[in-house]
Nucleic acid binder design. Structure first.
Lengths: 329, 329
DNA sequence: CTGAAAGCGCTAACAG
DNA sequence: CTGTTAGCGCTTTCAG
């Protein structure tokens, strides 16, 4: 049994309300008694019970964070941003991985509700799950996925612009047969980047897409399989815009395996700018996202909503991705 | 105000004790009333309040996980192992990053105590902090760091063996000037791997170490600087064993920048086998650790201790790292 | 099988 | 400045 404010009250022959006040630095406590309380607390190794406090204050000072895959180098950075900013504001993070599993996402959301987290940051598996997030009835911010519901705040990047920028660059560099590799897990994001891809091609007056458009899952072997089968069929793109870096890396791998070169035979541009993209052996051309900052911003938005749940404003922060030109395109 | 068991009790004109029993599937409840309770709970969108429950049961069903750096690809895998196993057992994870900062570690530890987590998994910043972990007075398991305190369970890998295996391999491959690059952040781990390094050299009868031993921090630029300055001084190793893959990657980068080749001029072996080590452009020879499994095992150990805090046995699981031979050595 | 009642540890009026 | 008193929402004896 750990010591409680009651223990220290008994010891000092004062009421435990006073102890509580002293410990919490409330006004209206005799400096004398306060010091005695503090001393006794230290001596008895008192640690406040956040569970009990949470029950009465209705605040747990913890935030729930749901991400699809901590193993994708993109997410640890946002997680760190979230954690750092949350810690500054006195909150801890309950971190959950969905592994792109909607069921899990759903389960975690209701878990968060049970645990009475003060707010949720959700990088959703797919747009369909947004309703689930909303249903939680808690302050909520969407992350790295475009907002569909104007009542809910979000921090995202402009995926259409990202796709457009990447593909426009490819076009100016003279590539003719530009492909798009999307991810099935992340439908909405994929769809938006695809939209940017089409827009760039349309503007350049060559709407011969679809011939080089493929979809697969996030595992990097997929990119390799996809490009490999195109190569062995003899009809392959001379440049591919992959929906994320992991995928792009897979494509590069596939091209090399086929005995071709990057960017000589097939140029590749990715998305995310994960740390390894800048590794000298890789030097992946990619669209960078401010991962860490996105995490921090999401917390800022969430904090706003927590502080003022009445007029939760549904602010939408849209960041612009930046083209990082390296050596694969 | 969300609905409570009292609300549903009132609605049904029964005592809320019965509601509690029904909801928790306790024995001794009329199936009839149980169904009514369940129906009412659903209709009123009842969500149990885990905070209130935690206060009385003295269990929060959450585990604290402290790691030094989520951004190092090694840790997301152990985090995932931890989370998956914890979820199976009904626990959630409070995840904290210390960024190799002892102060932060200390703070998180006492935070966990306040929040009354049921147990803690700690990948400590440095051996000195172990006392801090112990002081928490909670079920505790050390992770990826050798146990020093026989009262505390741990899951680690045999770092001495790892260093020994790596360097012995280098020796059999005919390398003569074998260097060791250690990390200042992770003293103990570094020291152990260094010990293995020495052992291998001693056994081979060439104790000319230290000339090629260097220390730096975990950032991958460090490895590059370190090797670069050795190269420019004209006295550099023909093989280096780096304390982890991130570091090893930096070394490779440095070698290339100096216009030399890997493994032609300088061979490199790392430690961890992070996902990118197997990327075709990298193909890093390294010592693999069962990251995901380590996470799961740590939870198993912790669960044992939670279930039976009386005789917390201090079990020590020592895993063996495995040499993965690829192309950098 | 069900109800009454106590209490987990703490905060927050409300009196003094 | 301090004490008294209600609870927060739930589990858990102890009686019926």
């Amino acid at each position: 049994m750990s010591t409680t404010i009651k223990d220290i009250a008994d010891r000092l022959n004062i009421s435990y309300a006073t102890v509580s006040r002293a410990l919490n630095g409330r006004y209206g406590v005799n400096p004398r008694t306060r010091e005695k309380v503090l001393a006794a607390a230290k001596k008895l190794h008192y640690t406040p019970n956040a569970v009990a406090r949470g029950l009465v204050t209705r605040q747990t000072m913890t935030l729930g964070l749901i991400i699809p895959d901590i193993t994708n180098p993109f997410f640890p950075w946002v997680a760190r941003g979230v954690e750092d900013r949350a810690a500054e504001a006195g909150y801890s993070i309950l971190l959950c991985n969905t592994n792109w599993d909607k069921k899990r996402e759903e389960r975690y959301l209701s878990l968060f509700k049970e645990k009475r987290v003060d707010g949720i940051i959700l990088a959703p598996v797919s747009p369909g799950e947004k309703r689930a997030g909303k249903r939680a009835g808690l302050p909520l911010v969407y992350m790295s996925d475009t907002r569909r519901d104007s009542n809910i705040s979000s921090v995202t990047i402009d995926n259409v612009l990202g796709g457009y920028t990447a593909v426009s660059y490819l076009i100016t560099m003279g590539y003719k047969r530009i492909g798009f590799f999307g991810a099935v897990e992340d439908e909405l994001t994929s769809a938006e980047r695809y939209q940017g891809y089409r827009k760039a091609l349309d503007e350049a007056g060559r709407p011969n897409y679809d011939r080089y458009v493929r979809y697969g899952d996030y595992r990097n072997t997929t990119g390799s399989h996809l490009i490999n089968s195109m190569i062995s069929e003899g009809d392959y793109p001379d440049a591919v815009f992959a929906v994320n870096d992991l995928f792009a890396l897979g494509v590069i791998q596939g091209v090399k395996e086929a005995g071709l070169s990057v960017p000589g035979d097939v140029a590749v541009v990715g998305f995310d700018d994960i740390p390894f993209a800048s590794f000298p052996e890789v030097m992946l051309t990619t669209m960078a996202q401010p991962k860490y900052e996105m995490g921090r911003m999401a917390v800022d938005l969430l904090l706003e909503e927590i502080d003022d749940p009445a007029r939760h404003r549904g602010r939408e922060i849209v960041l612009e991705p930046e083209l990082i030109i390296r050596r694969t395109a």
